[in-house]
């Protein structure tokens, strides 16, 4: 009898647990709402995804760069003394060096200084997985061009998976226009990368 009395007093102190059990049903309401909204949404603002920890890094020409990233001198493409109507080409490796399972897409933009003297007379053609044939690129998939370097701005790629890389064959061609001897132009290719949501 005494034990039953103690038992009852404890029950009355905490309740029998019915309220808490009913509140726990709220968990199902919430979960149900989250699941449904994630997979069957009418507003389109809720997209299911997985949480990704890491960091995004795109690197060129085998150079590992951390922020701040300055343009690296690309010795592979030597445009010194490029003749009228002449071309020069080289392969550039674009690599996803991200930390963690971070995939990316990238764009390619270009700039050539001194547009009046030389920069405006340079065009570029980019082929993914292309091959060098002398001073030209062949085969592969045309990503861009031929387009003036200063007008180059293309979304370049299928998704680049972590630790994957693309070999881009980049061919620069000078117009037939006669130009002042010795004129120079700094040519820069920039690859802005954006993380792809898994």
């Amino acid at each position: 009898m005494a034990e039953q009395l103690v038992e009852r007093s404890r029950r009355s102190w905490f309740g029998r647990g019915r309220t808490r059990a009913l509140l726990a049903v709220g968990l199902l309401v919430g979960t149900g709402a989250t699941v449904t909204s994630a997979y069957w949404t009418s507003e389109g603002t809720v997209v299911p995804g997985s949480v990704t920890a890491g960091a995004l890094h795109i690197d060129l020409d085998g150079r590992q760069q951390v922020k701040p990233e300055n343009a690296v001198a690309w010795s592979g493409l030597d445009l010194t003394g490029i003749p009228a109507s002449g071309s020069r080409a080289a392969i550039l490796n674009v690599r996803n060096n991200s930390v963690g399972p971070v995939s990316l897409t990238y764009r390619i933009t270009g700039s050539a200084t001194n547009p009046g003297a030389l920069g405006g007379n340079l065009t570029v053609t980019i082929r993914r997985a292309g091959q060098l044939s002398g001073q030209q690129c062949t085969n592969g998939t045309v990503v861009a061009g031929p387009v003036a370097i200063n007008a180059l701005s293309v979304a370049a790629s299928p998704v680049l998976a972590p630790n994957a890389s693309h070999d881009l064959c980049i061919q620069v061609t000078r117009s037939a226009t006669a130009l002042t001897t010795g004129a120079t132009s700094d040519v820069t290719f920039t690859f802005p990368a954006t993380q792809v949501q898994p």
């Binding site: 960091a55 995004l56 890094h57 795109i58 690197d59 060129l60 020409d61 150079r63 760069q65 990233e69 343009a71 690296v72 001198a73 690309w74 010795s75 493409l77 030597d78 445009l79 010194t80 003394g81 490029i82 550039l92 991200s98 971070v102 990316l104 050539a112 003297a117 030389l118 920069g119 340079l122 620069v172 000078r174 130009l179 002042t180 001897t181 010795g182 004129a183 120079t184 132009s185 700094d186 040519v187 820069t188 290719f189 920039t190 690859f191 802005p192 990368a193 954006t194 993380q195």
Partner: peptide, 13 residues
């Protein structure tokens, strides 16, 4: 995340 990388070379006549 975003990131950029760029390469530079100099052309001359």
């Amino acid at each position: 995340w975003t990131d950029t990388a760029s390469v530079r070379t100099t052309a001359s006549v």
